[in-house]
Design a protein around this nucleic acid. Structure first.
Length: 244
DNA sequence: GTGGAGTTTCCTGTTT
DNA sequence: AAAACAGGAAACTCCA
């Protein structure tokens, strides 16, 4: 259905997004080095300040609409039903899937998303929500003293996924929140996501679990004699509901 | 350049 | 039989 749509059709008038344009050409750069569009409002920079993996379904929908408005994309090209997904699922979409879901618009959307992912972000969704009164989707406000999840350790990555139930795609779930016991529901998906974070497409659950086992020595994790079940240890912090 | 922390990779063997 | 667990060993990356 989208074959007949040409560049000039949906990229009319003002701005034409060349897929080879650099990030700064597309968005410009803020004083603190974070990319933002020069005519973006404060709320627009939301998309570059929160890692896409942490976007909710609602955020994904808003991002699509933002891109349509900002880059003069024809919203009619986009099958919004294909994007009834959260940020994690969005990040796991291939370029082909973007093309299927949004035709040539998908090419641009994919490009823009990859730029956002590649160029990082300043604070995770929960912490950003602390800055923004009211937060995101009414999520409670947590502050872990972290400013950049891309530099976080594996256990922090796991913890943060657990603390974002909407965004973790069912990869992890609490078994006993009070005791810090959690279960890896989708082991390969977890490994894939960790691999994405570390830019290592050879990551497997076997290797990830080896790294987790090293945490037993340091008290970050405690052994639970059940498959795919782990427990935060005395040296892990930031996971307790009332101590965050 | 060096050393340590935190993985990553590979491996063999065991358990579920 | 397959998946997960256990943990040794070495390599690797990053940072101070």
């Amino acid at each position: 259905m989208l074959d007949s749509v040409t560049h000039s059709t949906f990229l009319s008038n003002t701005m034409v997004c060349d897929p080879l344009m650099s990030w700064t050409e597309l968005f410009g750069t803020t004083e603190d080095g974070y990319p933002t569009c020069d005519h973006q409002t404060d709320s627009d920079s939301f998309w570059t300040s929160i890692h896409p993996e942490y976007w909710s379904k609602h955020n994904v929908c808003e991002w699509l609409q933002f891109c349509c408005d900002q880059y003069k994309l024809d919203a009619n090209c986009i099958s919004f039903s294909h994007f009834n997904i959260n940020g994690l699922q969005l990040c796991n979409m291939t370029q082909e899937e973007f093309l299927d879901a949004a035709g040539i618009c998908g090419e641009y959307l994919y490009f823009i998303l990859q730029n956002i992912r590649t160029h990082g972000y300043s604070v995770p969704a929960r912490d950003k929500a602390c800055v923004r009164a009211g937060g995101i989707n009414g999520q409670e406000c947590h502050s872990h003293g972290r400013t950049n999840l891309q530099s976080s350790h594996l256990w922090e990555f796991v913890r943060d996924l657990l603390l974002s139930p909407e965004e973790n795609g069912g990869i992890l779930e609490w078994e006993d929140r009070g005791q810090g016991i959690f279960r890896v529901v989708k082991s390969e998906a977890l490994a894939k996501m960790w691999g994405q974070r570390k830019k290592n497409d050879r990551m497997t659950y076997e290797k990830l679990s080896r790294a987790l086992r090293y945490y037993y020595k340091t008290g970050i994790l405690e052994r639970v004699d059940r498959r795919l079940v782990y427990k935060f240890g005395k040296n892990a912090h930031g996971w307790q509901e009332n101590k965050i």
